[in-house]
Design a protein around this nucleic acid. Sequence first.
RNA 1: GGCGGCAUAGCCAAGUGGCUAAGGCAGCGGUCUGCAAAACCGUUAUUCACCGGUUCGAGUCCGGUUGCCGCCUCCA
Length: 507
Amino acid sequence: MSVGERLDDEDTVVMSLKLYNTLKKKREEFVPLEEGKVGIYVCGITAYDVCHIGHARSAVVFDVIYRYLKYKGYDVTYIKNFTDVDDKIIGKAIAEGTDIATISERYIKEHNEDMDRLGVARPTVTPRATENIKGMIRLIDTLMERGLAYVVNGDVYYSVEKFAGYGKLSGRGLDDMMAGARIDIDEKKKNPYDFVLWKASKEGEPWWSSPWGNGRPGWHIECSVMSQRFLGDTFDIHGGGEDLIFPHHENEIAQSEGATGKPFANYWMHNGFIKIDSEKMSKSLGNTLTIKQTLVAYHPEVVRFFILQRHYKSYIDFSDAAMAEARMGMERVYAALKGIKDARGEEADLSDLSEKDLDKEDEIVFEKVRTLPDRFTEAMDDDFNTPMALGYIFDIVRVINSYLPAKESPFTRGMLFTLSEARERIREAGKVLGLFLEDPDDYFAKDQEREVRKAGLDEEEIERLITERRQARDAKDWGRADEIRDLLVGKGIILKDTPTATTWKIG
RNA sequence: GGCGGCAUAGCCAAGUGGCUAAGGCAGCGGUCUGCAAAACCGUUAUUCACCGGUUCGAGUCCGGUUGCCGCCUCCA
C-alpha cells in the first residue's frame, strides 16, 4: 500500500485526498511532486502586534491540514514565516525608541505562546525575513536581469505587465482592475499595480546594502525567497488567509515564476475569515479580539472546536452565543469520554483484553466504533471536511451513550474492550483535530474554574451551600433544600444531583 | 465600476446528479428524581431563497430574479 491510499477489507478502494485549489478554482485530487512527501508553505504573521482570533483560525486550519497529511503517512515539511521587518514594525520601534528586533522578538514570543496554548504544532521551520535578505537581493537581481523589474531612485519595482500570468490566482486581469481602480496613482510606477521589491531606506530606518543602494525588502519578496529556500522552486501547497490572494499571493507567483520560469506552488489553499457578531473584524471597527482574550473566556479546545465545526473556506461568525454552543458540543464528547473512563476504573489492568471477550451485543457496538477511522478519513480526504469528521465522532458518542448507561457495574471484559476501542478511535481522530486530548476530569475541572472566574463567583461559598443543601435533603427538609437550589440557580449555577453526590456547573 | 462567494429546519452547519437531506445547539416527549435540574434516549426539513430549463432523476448542473457578504488599500 503506497502512501495516500488505503485498502479496504474487500475490494481495493483508492481513497485519495481532494482539495480545493484556489489557482484552478476547483476541487482537485492531491498529487504531491514527490511520492510520499509534501512541502507546504503558509504565510505567517507580521510581528508588530499580538495575534487575534483570525490568526488563530488560520493557524488551527493549517495545523489540522499539517497533522492530517502526517496522519496519512506523508513526510511533511511545513514552513511558516515570520515577517520581522516591515513598515508597521519600524513604526512601532520608532514610537518606542527601540529597534525592530526588539519589537518583532516580543511579538514572535507572544505568538508562540498563543500557538502553544491553542495546541498548534510548531511548523518544521519558521524562517524570518531578516535572516533571508541576501536571498531576496539575489531574487530581485534575477528579476532585474530578466527585465521584470526596474529601478526608480533606489526603489525597485516589479513590472506586472511583463509577467504574462499576472492575475491568474486572483482571477482578475490587469484591464479589469484598471477599470475600477481605487488605487492612488504613483508617478514613480509604470503601472499602478507594480509593487515594490526593494525600498530605499529613509532616515532612521533599518537598512541593508544592495546593488540599488541601502534599503530594505518590499512586502512580498520574502515569501518567494523563503519558500524556495526550504521547499524548492516548485512545491506542493501554499496556504494563507483568503485576503492574501490579492495582491500578496499573486505577487509571490509573479516574483517566483518570473525568476525561475517554473511553476511556483501547485495547490493554493485559503482559509475564510472570522467575523465578530456578524461584522468584519478590523482594527478600525475596534472589534478585534485577541487570542489571549479569547482564551481567558474559553478552553483552547473549545476555540479549536468552534473553528473546525465549519469548513475552512467559509467565513465564520464569532459570538458569545456561538462559543457557548461550541462549549456545549465539547461537553457532550467529554461527558462520553468520562463515562468510558469511569467505567474502566483507575486501577484495572486491561492490557490483555481482546476481541475474544466480545459478546454479541458488544460486537454490534464494537463494529460501529471501528468504522470511525475510515469515516474520519473519508471526511478529511474530502477537502478537509472537519464538520463532517466531527459529525462522525458525535455518531460514535451517541452509540456509546446508548450502550453505556444500559449496563450495570461491574463491566464485562467485552464491554471494557469495546469502550477502550471507542476511546482510542476518538482519540486517534482527536489527535489530528487537536481535540478531546485532555483527561475528561481535567477538562471539566478547568472548564468549571474558568466559568467561575468569568461569573465572578466564590467557589467555596458554592460548595458550602451545596453541602448545606445536601444535609437538608438528607433530613428531607425539601423547603430549605429547594431554597438553596433556587439561590444557586439564580447565580447561573446548575446542580447535578446523583444518588451519591451533588456536583455543579455553570450553564 | 471590476472580480468572486454565499442563500439548507428556531439558530449553527455538512451535503458538488441517484439509498430514508449528516452532525451540533435550542425545543418537545420519555427515563431518572421528593419535585426539579443535570445526564442520557427518542423526536423535530415531502424539503433545500424565488422563477424557468437540462436530465429517467437536481439541494446538487445551466439561465434569470431577489437578498446577503468578501476582495480590488496593510490585513489571517
